[in-house]
Amino acid sequence: MKRRVKENLIAYAFCAPAYTIFTIFLFIPIVWVVFLSLKDFSIVTFYSAKFVGFRNYLRLAKDQIFLRSIVNTIYFTLLYVPGNTILGLIFALLLNKPFKGRDFFRLALFIPNVIPMVVVSIIWSLIFSSSTTGIANRILISLHLKPIEWLSDYRYALIAVGIVLIWSGFGYRMLIFLAGLQNIPDELYEAAALDGATKWQITFKITLPLLRPTTFFVITTSLINSFQVFTPIYIMTGGGPGYSTTTIVNYLYTKGFSEFQMGYASAISVVLLVIILALTFVQRKIGREDIIF
């Protein structure tokens, strides 16, 4: 009995530093945000906030733009998560076995991840310039395609943002997949090759199934990231044209920081958190054998 208590205490001691930081700087704030979502205030009127009960949530339920922002975020997720996962996977498979220049290629694909998002966004708003001198359109023209109004056409604006985030993020996913590939024992490949399996068969019958935990991890973290997308949209499109690229966090920022409705923004935060938790939970149910979580 005494040993169990001691074991518990030691474990808590090990957890204490990290969880103290979490509690002070994340858990208390998030609980606080739940309370703040029941109030009406702006940043400057923080200390004289009015209690309004569930009014922010009732308003949110009727807010067309908020609904729009959820739809946009989901649409963006459908681009971002598969794009990053598939490209990351393909290039991990290509760059797994040693060949000439492999390390350089790995580095080259990862580099964009190193550049701050703010800078990435301004560089790409130039590449996506609608004029025929923007690099993206020059490539289209040289392929005899019609130039596209990337950031101004409501059909393409979110896709353009998706491309930017795939550019900056798929190399990172590639590294995670590469790591996952290290866990697959070589003997499996050798045995399959002895059985006369082709490269394709090996990839689809052995590699991919064994990569499932990694894939699951990549998808989950990408999902969380994509629901939190903000900076590139803020800089590249400003949420426009119309509301066609306004995502949840962009709307949260607009309401809280530029339209002085921090209470309302807090309600958005709470809803967003619930959505992400729900998604992670559903994902966990789907991929339950893959014991990553």
């Binding site: 708003s125 130039l126 609608s130 004029s131 001198t133 101004s152 499109t237 044209p241």
Partner: peptide, 21 residues
């Protein structure tokens, strides 16, 4: 009006003036 004007950044228009577009 130039293509892309719906959501163009002013810096972009400025560049297009320089480029003669």
């Amino acid at each position: 009006v130039q293509p892309g004007a719906v959501n163009a950044n002013l810096a972009d228009v400025r560049r297009q003036l320089v480029a003669g577009q």
